[in-house]
């Protein structure tokens, strides 16, 4: 009976993942390996960026709006924020579908999202990355790693650590069913600062982590150390988010750019 419960939980979480996220690893890999009829538009310099802005991301950049005359770095930063806000919205819906999450104290739900969404976002971002670049605009564009590196500082420091993490993370060859459980485990984490009902969340976390462990053994029988490797990735993601939050604070201080109110809420008093 316990195994049946675990399988049900794994299935519920996987279904919630497929339902709530616009992009997933299977979709991203199909595009990145050239198996789609129309390949993504490659953004590799200022000219191709402008072309992409006129077509793919016109809505995001607001081509007729306030950002039209701003420098490329600011426009790209704004696009990153739009994508982050969308993913946070998707992650919130996903979290609500994880059994037990919605019955938690509302303050604890807020805390789990505040600390979990960026870790989850960077774990999932790896699915859309390869060593040369990143899928953007729902997979219709591909922005190269070299172009992102060539931007002026501090914007050039934004994505490179995510690529470095992604290359190591992608080497683990997780599929969407593994990622669904991994993302759920990131969100339902009992040691976030300020949690009220720690015991309740720890129980949830324990069942998700147990399901993840069994799922990995069944889904990757040749990689017996995959589970401990993934636990290490949780620590790496925490570090990645800490550094990212510091960089965003620096950009906010030194650059004339706005930060979306939702992201401001998340970053405020984070670490």
């Amino acid at each position: 009976p316990q195994l049946a419960d675990q399988k049900t939980l794994a299935k519920q979480i996987y279904e919630a993942y497929l339902k709530n996220f616009n992009m997933n690893k299977a979709k991203a890999r199909t595009i990145l390996t050239g198996k789609t009829s129309t390949p993504p538009f490659v953004i590799h310099d200022m000219e191709t960026l402008q072309l992409a802005e006129q077509t793919l991301v016109a809505k995001m950049v607001g081509s007729a709006g306030a950002l039209k005359d701003r420098e490329a770095e600011v426009r790209i930063f704004h696009c990153c924020q739009c994508t982050s806000v969308e993913t946070v919205t998707e992650l919130t819906e996903f979290a609500k579908s994880v059994p037990g999450f919605s019955s938690l104290d509302l303050n604890d739900q807020v805390t789990l999202l505040k600390y979990g969404v960026y870790e989850a976002l960077f774990a999932m971002l790896a699915s859309s990355m390869n060593k040369d670049g990143l899928l953007v605009a729902y997979g219709s564009g591909f922005i190269t790693r070299e172009f992102l590196k060539s931007l002026r500082r501090p914007f050039s420091d934004m994505m490179e650590p995510k690529f470095q993490f992604a290359m190591k993370f992608n080497a683990l060859e997780l599929d969407d069913s593994d990622l669904a459980l991994f993302v759920a485990a990131i969100i339902c984490c009992g040691d976030r600062p300020g949690l009220v009902n720690v015991a309740h969340i720890e129980r949830m976390q324990e069942s998700i982590v147990q399901v993840l462990q069994h799922h990995l053994l069944a889904n990757h029988p040749d990689d017996t150390f995959l589970f401990p490797k993934l636990l290490q990735k949780l620590a790496d993601l925490r570090q990645l988010v800490t550094e990212h939050a510091q960089l965003v604070q620096e950009i906010k201080k030194t650059e004339d750019t706005s930060l979306h109110p939702l992201l401001q809420e998340i970053y405020r008093d984070m670490y």
């Binding site: 704004h78 924020q81 739009c82 806000v85 969308e86 946070v88 919205t89 919130t92 819906e93 609500k96 509302l106 303050n107 739900q109 807020v110 805390t111 999202l113 505040k114 300020g194 979306h260 109110p261 939702l262 809420e265 998340i266 405020r268 008093d269």
Partner: peptide, 21 residues
């Protein structure tokens, strides 16, 4: 905490909520 995280709180309470920049 809810007061400091009004949008997160709103996202948690509503089924779908467009968050415009």
């Amino acid at each position: 905490l809810k007061e400091k995280h009004k949008i997160l709180h709103q996202l948690l309470q509503n089924s779908t909520s467009p968050v415009d920049l």
